[in-house]
Design a protein around this nucleic acid. Structure first.
Ligand SMILES: [Mn+2]
Ligand SMILES: [Mn+2]
Ligand SMILES: [Mn+2]
Ligand SMILES: [Mn+2]
Lengths: 223, 223
DNA sequence: AAATAAATTTAGGCATGACTAAATTATACA
DNA sequence: TGTATAATTTAGTCATGCCTAAATTTATTT
């Protein structure tokens, strides 16, 4: 069996190689909050297990076996987040931390039972896709809210889940995945977004908007 | 924070000192399936943390602080067992193994939410008492089924929870905690017990009976 | 093409938590 | 009261997974 640490490395490599192919030791180390030397050490171990491809100074990528493990852990994480949220009422800014520990520990049986209880869901409380039990991920084509223009309407697809305070802030506007809103005004010179959520106006700063991803963008004349 | 290993040692010392005061290194090591030398090492570490009292060759006992930690972990374990059983339908012979890993990992928040969901229960699926959040344990005075005589009636109070196959076997007779039965016959020469469970007769071997604890024992003439 | 800067690797260490083998202490009994 | 036996401790190892500091390699700039 893999250690918790090895699983977290594989998960991180998966996420980083999604946006940008080969993953450098430094990027991986920064993402995991360890030193590059520690990352090199683990990468070598993962290579002997044939879970990653690696050439020194050339970055690392997952093998098919490594990707399968990564997706398995990501599936655990996101199912757990949704389960904690729906079944136990853990607030959406608390589920990530909890799932980060539980993901390494639950059995396949418990995974399957949560999946069934939740009705085979496809997204976690932050809108991130839950890989199915065969490791198939449904990709959506969402864009950062910062790309929106005056008058456009859209639906929240996903929000970054790692910063708890940011999630509480976003939650205070009711901007959960699935929530529809319309851009009332984008202030000039990189200014904030004024939006209309079910008749309620809210002002969203650019730093926050970077972490909100939307889809189904419609211009007002297309309605 | 304590390591998983330290928590398991404290939990084990608690359980062993319940029946017999001071706990010897050998007994503790056997219980945890490690070598005595390993137990000595951990005991020394726990002593520096003031969680146990210990003098070499003289056995070990928990301090108040150590007992509090032990009860906290036991509470996690038993709440988790019951939660997995009731909320996710994990069979009663599977909950122990799962809880053994989860007990070290769940937050106080999740503990409290499970407790609420379950209606502040006082016993796990095997009948073992769940310490309350202040560490108070409700003690019951149950006796091993092997002490029963012909004609006596009783209710199952608790069954040993660590042997999965044994639990499946006991479950096949529906001998869950709370189940009432009457002893039809105790075969002589250390023979098996024939019992009546809601009109259904079952024969229970002595080895199995050792692991079933009963209470509210009544002789037939007292009814 | 060198020189500098950045990234990465190597070497050496530390803390955990297990192990085996050998030495020590306690206990049991003759 | 000594001696055999059993229990326990000590000493020395090993594997993980992290760290820092120094050496090495690659990338960038002039
Ligand atoms: Mn994790
Ligand atoms: Mn998430
Ligand atoms: Mn445990
Ligand atoms: Mn139990």
């Amino acid at each position: 069996m893999l250690t918790h640490a090895a699983e977290d490395y594989l998960k991180s490599i998966y996420k980083l190689q999604e946006k940008g192919g080969k993953v450098s030791t430094g990027i991986l180390a920064e993402f995991l909050d360890v030193k590059p030397a520690s990352a090199t050490g683990m990468i070598k171990k993962l290579k002997t297990m044939k879970l990653v491809r690696y050439e020194r100074y050339r970055g690392v990528t997952l093998t098919a076996a490594g990707k399968a493990v990564a997706l398995e852990i990501i599936r655990h994480h996101r199912l757990l987040e949704l389960y904690l949220f729906k079944a136990l009422g853990v607030p959406w800014d608390g589920v990530h931390e909890e799932a980060e520990k539980l993901e390494h520990v639950i059995s396949e049986d418990v995974e399957a039972r949560m999946d069934e209880y939740l009705g085979y869901p496809t997204a976690d409380p932050h809108g991130a896709p839950i890989p199915d039990k065969n490791g198939v991920v449904i990709q959506t084509d969402s864009v950062p809210m910062t790309e929106l223009k005056d008058g456009q309407s859209c639906v929240v697809a996903e929000v970054s889940d790692s910063d708890s305070a940011l999630l509480r802030h976003i939650g205070s506007f009711n901007l959960y995945p699935g929530t529809a809103f319309r851009v009332v005004e984008v202030a000039p010179f990189e200014g904030p977004f004024t939006i209309d959520i079910a008749g309620q106006e809210a002002v969203i700063g650019r730093e926050v908007a970077k972490h909100i991803f939307v889809e189904q963008v419609q211009d007002p004349d297309n309605v």
